[in-house]
Design a protein around this nucleic acid. Structure first.
Lengths: 202, 202
DNA sequence: CTTTAATGAATGAACGGTCATTCATTAACT
DNA sequence: AGTTAATGAATGACCGTTCATTCATTAAAG
């Protein structure tokens, strides 16, 4: 009954992420996003209500996409620990590629004061935590972790290690981020893996 | 010979940090900083050249203060590992108190594109890394770590764990940040401490 | 099938506000 | 007096937002 939208919401949100990645959070202006998709600033306001509305839609989308992370993370991997490694690598790549090193940090530091943003950011974090915990639980069940391992506590440690690796890498970009994340994961898991006595122990 | 300055540079820089902590990076305006110290925006520009100059002075000060971290961190603590724990706690408190959770992240995500800022941020990071490594080295020498421990690699892991703990805590503030940092440090060190076999090992 | 009305998308110009920066001037000190 | 600090008003740029208007599309009416 009316003129269809020339550009989908999803495209606009992706463009916003691109702009943040290219020009930093400070460069994220409605005009920049609009130019990216061939629209005009006013249109974005009409469609998202305000700049905050656009950012909020971005946060909501992230939270929604993270919902099924616990099951999605397991797919396509042989062992739970392999899936865990892939999950952490992808989650930090998502945080530290030129594109989104600013996306995650940027959205964070601009808007973490805002309760709505904090809610969605926390939802993403919790979903990832559930995913990590599920994978560790499965690993424990499969005998890939020492019996008696506190998988909940270990999940927190694993997540902190991955986040820290990404953060450090943002400052000191030597080597690949994925390698660094994998290394930190291995360091954290080493103590909980069954019976691979290191040289100096035997 | 001339009229003396009514307010020191250091006071202005501290005020800038306070403003960031209170209103976030977006609220950091010359007018806000000037009001904080009883001056006028123009004065700040005259003294620091520009807003960027003021922020740069802040980053330089941080880098300068971090220079002697390797020796300062050791002071006032009985064991190197106790000093390490205190260093990490204070460095993340500096990153996650209401004041400076934004200071660190904020300065980071606003300005990490700027080569000058990146230089100073990297200097701080490297100084801390040296401090951590020195403390671990001393601990190894004192027999508090297993012989043959790669202290350089361990230092990277320790620093990532602490940074990650701070980052995670910024999202999910349950318990004290210091406790969480200490917990992560303990988790990382556990595998490298000599011969405290856990229950399931004996 | 043609015409008309209704509807939502998109525009572009303008507004109001904020902010960094400039500059001429005044005040305070030696 | 001479030098520097500080002022305060002014400037120009940028940005989010508003709004009247145009345009494309579809549904209904003739």
């Amino acid at each position: 009954m009316a003129r269809p939208r020339g550009v989908e919401d999803a495209v606009i949100l992706r463009a916003a992420v691109d702009v943040i990645g290219r020009s930093g959070p400070g460069g994220l202006t409605l005009a920049a996003v609009a130019r990216e998709v061939g629209l005009v600033p006013g249109t974005l306001v009409q469609r998202f209500g305000s700049k905050r509305g656009l950012l909020l839609a971005l946060a909501e989308q992230a939270a929604r996409e993270a919902e099924d992370l616990p099951v999605r993370a397991r797919q396509g991997h042989d062992s739970p620990l392999a899936a865990l490694e892939a999950l952490l690598v992808s989650s930090t790549e998502h945080m530290a590629t030129p594109e989104a090193f600013a996306h995650h940090l940027g959205v964070l530091c601009i808007d973490l004061t805002d309760p709505e943003f904090h809610r969605h950011a926390l939802a993403v974090h919790r979903a990832q935590q559930r995913a990590v915990e599920a994978l560790l639980g499965e690993a424990a069940g499969a005998g890939e972790l020492r019996p008696g391992t506190d998988t909940a506590a270990l999940a927190a440690t694993v997540q902190a290690a991955a986040a820290g690796a990404g953060l450090v890498w943002a400052l000191d970009r030597s080597g690949s981020l994925a390698d660094r994340v994998r290394r930190e994961l291995a360091a954290v898991l080493r103590a909980h893996q069954p019976h691979h006595p290191r040289p100096e122990e035997r």
